[in-house]
Nucleic acid binder design. Structure first.
Lengths: 339, 339
DNA sequence: TTGAAAGCGCTAACAT
DNA sequence: ATGTTAGCGCTTTCAA
């Protein structure tokens, strides 16, 4: 590939001039601009972004580190993050850690501050040690939508009100008359999704119902996890009238298990999730869920990261997305009569 | 962040020595290695990958350009591509074009040969012009799983036998006694999925059945597309006993439409897709489909690209993945009696 | 308006 | 075994 100096030679100017027309600072005489552009066209020149990054001290790349690109939540997040980044003239590097914290760390340590100008980290099981190490570099890092916020006050962070989401789900089921409700709780890399569960428990507690531990299942937050948990729940508690899942993917797994047993949704059992991924809309019956606002979380997170890159702050910025909202679809209904 | 020369100064050696211990060429005396490593630890030094890339003339990044990260096929592809790349010491940049060819071109032109050592392109509506322009750079590019191979003989390429996939689907339905079959054909960026349709038609033709154009629908290859096409098909041809979709995502949409009309699968209508994405396994009833071997395609493509980067060839390499295979699940069954 | 020159942080001959 | 030196391709003062 042609380089700047080849273009310069061909145009009969120096690299400084070519560089100037490239980034059209208005310092170059139109006639010269024309010559340079001809030379660029003739050589098929493209700027070497690595060299530019080195010279400028910034790569215009940001990394998005996430645990499992196959979990449909993340592609939805990626799509909006990528678009926002592109509009702000950044490239987005998607780093999938395959749920392995060591890979996450490796990415972070290799990329942050060298390949990428900043890093956005999602649910990736990052430790306080990692955070501290990273803070010694000037490279910005933001966390988004973490379940546990213990270290989040020391680092820029976009906060989702998971507790409220669980609460809303619980309130909805209560309003439909359900009292015997199973709970399926995902165990991601960050540990159990306790915020959501506690919100749910809180809602039931307000109605004088305590959630027996025997009614909750902790499983991997996958379709398979939801399936297994539902099987287990149903075998031990055939009298359940509703199932609450801490995310939609597990709710989908639950709906499978129910279908496999010829249990009708919502006539026999109501089902509710959290997040509102596309799949929730596509399921049949469509899934009632508590929307977390993926688009907003993604937009806020990436914008925060880019803002931090362009305008470093001393105090870590903590942002809150608006509270989750209930989306009633077809998977929840009035409690059935007692058997 | 600390630089090489700071480390060198602290260790009392030169940058060359530090560089050598970093990439442990065995040229450095153990005692010196120790000193250098201490200095590295003390400074928290991390190599600047941009500078290294510039010096080495290679970035160790490859780009994967794809049209729609929300289509579950792509995350499955990304996951294996990323893993293979990582094992071969490359970073994978995922570039989502949002189905917009202009964005695809922009990525290609900006990234190929500058940020990335090579580019893997999937279904992104790339034109012959683009290919030609890119060929003038030394940067390798490989196409994978393209429907139309007209320009593929001029460029490294991983070929999937889509025609055979359609044929297998047709044969399966025929074997179950179906003769009145609707066909739903996706229109991706590369145009209609004709290979698959033709394979399907071929299978029916061998059984003396010609597929009336009135029985085929061309729609966007999305859940919504499959849904709409099924509605349309059913309204005009209530006597259909089976529906063939050129991919699983549309088949999922079809299953929704069927569910919405209380039409049972497979008792009333059989349904078959192509690809075998995870969703096909998760659907209820689980989807009978023709597996394209995503993992193999991804592995072969990324390996081909990396091979080409490390070992440039003159003749474009064309590789074929093994033929698709039928995966019988619960969505297909014997033809129902005529109404 | 353009050129000359230094430097971004690293690697890689070539010397010593 | 270690140091010296010259780039990689670009941006960016500072001069002219």
């Amino acid at each position: 590939m042609a380089t700047l100096s080849e273009v310069a030679r061909l145009a009969g100017v120096t690299t400084a001039t070519v560089s100037n027309v490239l980034r059209n600072t208005q310092k170059v005489k139109p006639a010269t601009v024309q010559k340079v552009q001809d030379a660029i066209a003739a050589t098929g020149y493209r700027p070497n972004l690595m060299a530019r990054a080195l010279a400028e001290g910034k790569s215009s790349m940001v990394a998005l580190v996430l645990p499992d690109i196959n979990n449909p939540f993340y592609p939805e997040f990626v799509r909006v993050a990528e678009r926002v980044a592109r509009h702000r003239n950044y490239f987005l590097m998607v780093c999938n850690t395959d749920e392995r914290p060591d890979i996450g760390r490796a990415y972070l340590h290799q990329i942050a501050g060298t390949l990428a100008d900043g890093v956005l980290v999602l649910h990736t099981g990052i430790s306080a040690d990692d955070i501290n190490e990273l803070k010694t570099r000037r490279s910005p890092i933001v966390l988004a939508s973490e379940e546990h916020v213990d270290l989040a006050d020391r680092i820029p962070h976009v906060v989702v009100n998971f507790h409220r989401a669980g609460e809303i789900a619980g309130q909805h089921l209560l309003a439909l008359g359900h009292t015997r409700i199973g709970a399926i709780v995902g165990c991601g890399l960050e540990g159990m999704q306790l915020g959501r569960l506690n919100g749910f428990k809180g809602a039931l507690a307000s109605a004088g119902i305590t959630v027996d531990d025997a009614l909750v299942r902790n499983v991997s937050d996958t379709v398979a996890g939801g399936h297994e948990a539902t099987d287990s729940l149903l075998e031990q508690h055939p009298d359940l009238t509703a199932i609450f899942c801490t995310n939609d993917l597990m709710a989908y797994g639950a709906s499978q298990a129910l279908a496999d047993r010829n249990i009708r949704i919502p006539q026999d059992i109501s089902l509710i999730g959290i997040t509102d991924i596309q799949l929730a809309r596509d399921m049949r019956p469509a899934l009632t869920t508590v929307a977390l606002g993926i688009e907003q979380v993604a937009t806020m997170s990436i914008n925060l990261l880019l803002d931090l890159i362009e305008n470093p702050q001393h105090e870590p910025t903590i942002m809150h997305v608006p509270d989750p909202v209930l989306v009633v679809r077809a998977s929840t209904g009035l409690v059935r009569n007692a058997p």
